[in-house]
Design a protein around this nucleic acid. Structure first.
Lengths: 342, 342
DNA sequence: CTGTTAGCGCATTCAA
DNA sequence: TTGAATGCGCTAACAG
């Protein structure tokens, strides 16, 4: 409604002068007109038309946050309570930098490209992008891109990514379990959509076993089913007396908490009859009884780092470490019991 | 990069013809040119410049989602895992309707107004807006607005709001507690920012007491401190043997879960020594032991309804129930024990 | 110090 | 059935 032109008219000056005031080019404006113009701007509650800005600049000051989801899944990743920490941190950082957030969930790379073009996005953050589409996206988008928790198959190119020491996390948890006498463990992987991370964690577990001269067979990697009932069946089966396993190594606190509570309900005591570990150290880990022994990570930090890296890219500043892996930490609580033999 | 003009050149037609194709005005285009133009559009991966669209239309197809936060609080509401269900549902619905999501956290109404003007937002959803600023916002924004979980002091105007049967929730939980022999209860309120809802819930509790010819004194409404340590001190104090209370009525599952786990750690058994109830029936409620007796609400549904109401407003369709209150349901689990006397 | 102007991409009206 | 012209609000280059 209130445009530069109108402000100019009302203040009795030219549009350019108003623009000069708005952009703080004070050298080109006399004190008198400055005051005059500023007061009119206040009165009129002027807000620039971002559409016109995009048109003039071919840049929108919008950062796209793309959350990937599996095509056939009805749930959004956003509905997972644990994307919230990371999202919250990003939104704040973006706002503090004077940019805007456009949030979008998808599983389709073409959609991402379209979005980026249509809105002239200043940059994008891609969360949990499946590795097969990273290349495609990078090829088709020329604005800065930062990935979060992505693994790349192509090593030719420089990807900007904020990841986690997944392998190290697996290693730490397995080493701890071994030290507690657990040599028959089973690794429970999350969604197939995040395979690369889970695989790295499992590989860390194997490393720890190898270090002790032991072998963790491939078939100790088990994919959790999507259906809760099916998962529960699986937990029970794995924790059963007839099962060889002494510990369930879950790749998320959520599943660990679910397993613990379900097993307890089924009359199986944790950790007396079976030990359970988590991954993430989110709020569940401390609320559930027994409290979860888990691998700690700082999700908010991931979001913060992603945005500050993106901002550097936008400003053409050098980025020292394109592929960052945040550290993890073993958090020992009460869900693992020392055993001698089974 | 690829504009209507370029497409037109490449296809050997005028820009208008391309626009006609894009908008499906097939009556004005011959079959031959249609095919020609469409194939060029495909090749060029045409995506409209939304900036130009905003400029031409004064409408951006962007829905603003505004999450309110307290001014001095460092945390974002988004970092609360329970805004995620509602946010996820909204994002999906907005996308399905062909609109875009702009996400913004603030505590300042002027910022909301500015955002709405600058981006020519097609509509806004305001989540947890404090009642004192609702009026101001409504006065200054002429695009459709839908509130979520807001309470209004001004009854002159029609507000569009998706709320909850807060009072009824308080009533149900209190009636249940009374039926279990609890007549000395204390209500633990959330953040001061959501006072209105908490007050309604408490008022529901009082209603239940009144119905039984009993009185629930005003000082049974206790505001939980922001600091976790302080909250824990309070839980302990309220659950102590010397305390008159037999039940802690928490206004969120989060605090209930926190109280339960902290009390158990401090050697106070729940529900044997003290009963605890929650509100929300989120994922905690079922994972914590004892499982929480709580009031169920469907957060995702809130988000969905908000968007479908907003879409009706945008399309100028009639909205039957501007101030909707979603139903609640008492969910009885294991955190309340029947008592005879204390 | 201040004003004028062209052009960004699109929709729309009018003309052919 | 197709084309040309205008304006949306702003920027930046240029002229005064």
């Amino acid at each position: 409604m209130s445009t530069i032109k109108k402000i100019a008219q009302k203040a009795g000056v030219s549009p350019t002068t108003v623009a000069n005031v708005l952009h703080g080019r004070l050298g080109r404006v006399s004190q008198g007109t400055l005051n005059k113009v500023q007061s009119v701007i206040q009165e009129e509650k002027y807000a620039p038309n971002m559409g016109a800005l995009i048109l003039a600049h071919s840049d929108s000051r919008i950062i796209g946050i793309i959350m990937f989801m599996e095509p056939r899944r009805d749930e959004t990743v956003l509905e997972d309570p644990f994307s919230s920490a990371i999202l919250g941190a990003m939104e704040r950082k973006i706002r503090e930098n004077g940019y805007f957030v456009m949030l979008h969930t998808t599983s389709d790379e073409a959609e991402v490209v379209r979005l980026s073009k249509a809105w002239k996005l200043a940059g994008l953050v891609l969360v949990w992008a499946p590795s097969n589409i990273c290349n495609i996206i990078c090829d088709s988008i020329d604005t800065p891109l930062v990935f979060i928790d992505s693994y790349f198959t192509d090593n030719q190119r420089v990807y900007y990514n904020i990841g986690l020491q997944d392998q190290r996390g697996g290693y730490e948890i397995a080493r701890y379990l071994l030290s507690m006498g657990h040599s028959r463990i089973v690794f429970l992987a999350n969604d197939p959509s995040f395979t690369a991370g889970d695989k790295a964690r499992f590989s860390g577990c194997r490393e720890a076993f190898q270090e002790q001269g032991q072998l963790l067979p491939e078939d100790c990697y088990v994919q959790l089913p999507k259906d809760r009932r099916e998962r529960e069946k699986l937990y029970l089966q794995l924790a059963d007396d007839s099962s060889p396993y002494t510990a369930l190594v879950c790749s998320s606190d959520y599943h660990a908490a679910e397993a613990v509570s379900f097993l307890q309900d089924s009359g199986i005591e944790v950790p007396r009859q079976i030990s359970v570990t988590g991954f993430d150290d989110n709020i569940f880990a401390r609320l559930v009884r027994p409290r979860l022994t888990t691998i700690h990570q700082d999700s908010g930090e991931k979001g913060k780092l992603a945005i500050s890296m993106l901002m550097k890219l936008i400003r053409n500043e050098p980025v020292s470490e394109p592929n960052r892996r945040l550290p993890i930490r073993l958090e020992i609580r009460d869900s693992v019991q020392r055993i001698v033999e089974k």
